[in-house]
């Protein structure tokens, strides 16, 4: 098991190198450091000297990949690529183009993201499984038919409508929760509750429908029929046999996104003013803070790869027939 995980981790290294090269190319070949300097120095009274100094301060005055003026190993290390991309591997994210320490910002913004994403994730799974089971339980009845219709309708509505509508109704008209913002500790609950509800509702349609097919697939299997024939009540069959087995595809499907919960949701966070990593990324995109975007791309890739490894492990945990190799 451990050997397997180590091997998978090693396999992740070339992928991260690839990610790194790709983002580096996108950011540095497309936009010159001059451009970056100009946006960050503002609009009024920008001199070429100020730009040169800005670049120098951030190490953007170096050559991209190969420094012919340096000596020895410095030829490769005293370059933008080494100083800004390779250091990511040791999770040294460096400073943002505005001069703030990115690592610290990520650490502090991670929690609000989690505060939204984790409840959304957990409540979402619970609600979706409950609904899916209900539909499977009442399969063939009007409840099932209408349930599926409602699910299809719900998944045909853009998330944006849920967000816009939810905020308008609950915050503006009914005065139930603050319109936007965030606070720490217990005070956070009133800010979190609406985004979580909206996030859950937005995901009900597609997930319920998908999980329902998982349940139905299990229900039609022989062992379920046998159980039923033995005279077990429908509820018992559903909870004892079907649920347990249908959880396998459900769990393995969601494990991959668990690490990505840290990154949060771009739309939810920017809409509700949650100071998490999602809004951090959006702000970085809007203000073209390349250092932050680079760091977030790298972090996202790392988390995604962790998710993949977790998925593989979870297969073996829930289904002993699968062996790791």
């Amino acid at each position: 098991m451990i050997a397997y995980i180590v091997r998978r981790l090693l396999y992740a290294v070339p992928i991260l190198i690839g990610v790194n090269l790709l983002t580096f190319a996108l950011f540095f070949f497309v936009n010159s450091p001059d451009d970056m300097a100009r946006i960050h120095l503002g609009m009024k009274r920008v001199t070429p000297e100020a730009i040169a100094k800005w670049k120098e301060d951030r190490g953007y005055d170096k050559p991209l990949l190969y420094n012919s003026r340096a000596a020895g190993a410095d030829k490769f290390t005293d370059t933008i690529f080494f100083r800004h991309s390779v250091r990511l591997f040791v999770f040294d994210f460096g400073r943002s183009d505005q001069g703030r320490n990115i690592g610290r910002d990520i650490m502090s913004r991670m929690w609000p993201s989690l505060a939204i994403a984790l409840p959304t994730f957990l409540v979402g799974i619970l609600v979706n499984i409950t609904f899916a089971m209900l539909l499977a339980f009442f399969r063939g009845s009007y409840l099932d038919t209408w349930g599926v219709v409602v699910a299809v309708i719900m998944m045909s509505i853009s998330t944006l409508f849920y967000v816009i509508g939810g905020q308008y109704l609950v915050s503006k008209l009914l005065h139930l929760v603050p319109i936007s913002g965030y606070d720490t500790g217990v005070e956070a609950i009133k800010f979190i509750i609406l985004p979580v509800i909206i996030g859950v509702i937005g995901g009900i349609g597609s997930s319920t429908r998908l999980y329902r097919t998982f349940f139905l697939e299990e229900i039609n299997k022989d062992y379920v029929r046998t159980a039923r024939a033995k005279g077990l009540s429908e509820l018992r069959v559903l909870f004892h046999h079907v649920l347990k087995n249908a959880m396998i595809p459900i769990l393995t499907g969601v494990v991959v996104i668990i690490p990505l919960l840290f990154i949060g949701s771009l739309i939810m966070e920017s809409f509700f003013g949650i100071p998490g990593l999602g809004s951090y990324t959006i702000d970085a995109i809007n203000s073209q803070d390349f250092a932050i975007v680079r760091a977030m791309v790298f972090l996202g890739s790392v988390l995604y790869i962790i998710g993949l490894i977790l998925t593989d492990i979870s297969y073996t945990v829930v289904d002993p027939r699968v062996r790791l190799n």
Binding site: I15, G18, V19, L22, T23, L26, F27, V30, L260, I263, L266, T281, I285, V293, M296, V297, G300, S301, Y304, I305
Partner: peptide
């Protein structure tokens, strides 16, 4: 490699 970059960021870039 491609799929491990968050899609939104790749699109933004």
């Amino acid at each position: 490699t491609l799929s491990s970059i968050p899609g939104v960021l790749l699109i933004a870039a």
